[in-house]
Design a protein around this nucleic acid. Structure first.
Lengths: 208, 208
DNA sequence: TAGATTGTTAATCGATTAACAATC
DNA sequence: TAGATTGTTAATCGATTAACAATC
C-alpha cells in the first residue's frame, strides 16, 4: 500500500506542522491552498513544502494548488493518525493533571485512557473522569490494553524508573516532560518537551 | 566582551541540551567529562559537541576533557542565564496552573512573577502564591516590570490576541502552548510546544 | 488561451564527520 | 614518557533553494 521512501527525520518533523496549519485553514472555511500560502503561514519555503510532500505522493494540481481536505486526509494517513491512539499519563502532579484533562487530543488523533501515580495518598482519587491507578499495576494494565503511547510527567529523579516500566509494558513512544535524557532501547521513541530547554533557546537571542 | 561568531540556530538549539546534561552530571557528583561521554548521553557525536563549543571559546583541556562546573558556567553565560529571567503566564487553565506552580524553573534561570487570565470568574483567585490578574491590565503590568519572557497557555482561538498584547507590552520571547502559529514581528521569538505535534512525530514511526 | 502552481531536477548551501596535530 | 582528548581542518554528507517543464 505505502511506498517505501527513505524519509529524513527532519521532514517527518515538519509534517505535523503542515497538518496543523491545514486543519486550521479548513476550520476557517478555506478549501484550497498553495505551497506558497502554506509556507508563508509557517515560515517555510514553498519549494520545501512541495519537496517534502512529493516524498509521499502527488497531492496537488498544477495551476490550482492543494485541496485542503484531501491533503489533511493524506497527512493523517502518513502520520498514522487516521485512527485514535490510546495513551497513558504517568505522574498525576500538575503537569499530569493538565495532560489528563487536556481537550486538544481527541480531535487530533489521541486520547488519554489511564492515569498512574506512585503516591499512595492520591491513588484512587479522581482527575477529570480518570481514577488514578497505582504504578504497581501499570505494566499489566498497559499490556492488557496494548497501549503504545505514554506521556511521562514525573519528577526527574523518578523518570528513568518509570520509563523502564513503560518499555517493559510494551510502550513504543514516550512524550517526556521530565528534564532528563531517558535511556531506552532501539525501537522506542522519546520526544523531550522540557519547557526550560525552549526558554533557554530563546534567551540566547535575548542579549542586552 | 563576547566574540561575534555567527552561530547557526541548530547549534543554539543543542546548547541547552548540553547544559542540562552537564548540570545533571554535576548533581551526580561528577566533576569532569569528555565530549565522548557527553555525546553518548545525548546521542550526539563527540566531534559535533566539540565543534559546537568551539564556536564560543576553548573550554576544555587536551587529554583531560571538560571541567563540568566551568563549562556549565560558560554555557549559562552564552545562553544568558547567568541571571534570573522574570516571566509571566497568560492563561490560568490547567496548563497555566501547571506552569505557574512548576518547581523546575528557578534553579535553571527563570521564574514566574505574574499570572493573567481574561475570565472575570477566576481573576483575583490564587494559583500557588500568585493572584490571577486581569489581561485588561496586563500590558501595563508587563511594561512596568520590564518583562521580556511569557508563557502562553490560552485556548487556540485566543492565542493571537493575547500574543498581540504581549508584543505590545514589550515581550520578546513567547513559549506558546496553543496549537497555532502565532504572527509576531521581527525580533520577537516564539517557541511552539504543542504536545500533539510531538506525538504526531512519533506516531509516524509507529507503523503496523 | 493566459495565468498559476505543481513536481522534480540540478545547483547551492550548510551541517556533520573523520582525521590529526597539538598538548595536557 | 605514554595515553588521552581537545580544537580545527578538510572531506563528506545531506538539506535547501532556484528554476522550469508539465499541466491544470
Amino acid at each position: 500500500m505505502d511506498r517505501i521512501p527513505i524519509v529524513p527525520d527532519i521532514v517527518v518533523g515538519r509534517l505535523p506542522l503542515y497538518l496543523r496549519a491545514l486543519q486550521r485553514m479548513a476550520q476557517e472555511g478555506q478549501s484550497i491552498t498553495s505551497s506558497q500560502e502554506l509556507g508563508e503561514r509557517l515560515g517555510i519555503s514553498a519549494a520545501q513544502i512541495r519537496k517534502d510532500l512529493s516524498l509521499f505522493g502527488e497531492f496537488g494540481k498544477q495551476g490550482t494548488g492543494y485541496q485542503i481536505d484531501y491533503l489533511v486526509e493524506k497527512l493523517r494517513q502518513i502520520l498514522h493518525v487516521d485512527k485514535i491512539w490510546d495513551m497513558v499519563v504517568v505522574g498525576a502532579g500538575d503537569v499530569g493533571r493538565a495532560l489528563s484533562r487536556y481537550q486538544g487530543f481527541t480531535d487530533r488523533g489521541f486520547r488519554v485512557v489511564m492515569v498512574f501515580d506512585k503516591d499512595p495518598k492520591i491513588i484512587g482519587s479522581q482527575i477529570g473522569s480518570f481514577q488514578i491507578q497505582s504504578t504497581d499495576t501499570m505494566i499489566q494494565a498497559i499490556r492488557e490494553n496494548c497501549i503504545l503511547v505514554a506521556m511521562l510527567a514525573v519528577p526527574a529523579d523518578q523518570a528513568q524508573e518509570a520509563a523502564d516500566k513503560l518499555v517493559e509494558a510494551g510502550v513504543k513512544a514516550i512524550l517526556n516532560y521530565a528534564p532528563i535524557n531517558l535511556g531506552v532501547p532501539e525501537g522506542v521513541y522519546v520526544q523531550n518537551t522540557d519547557p526550560v530547554t525552549y526558554l533557554l533557546r530563546m534567551s540566547y537571542y535575548l542579549a542586552s
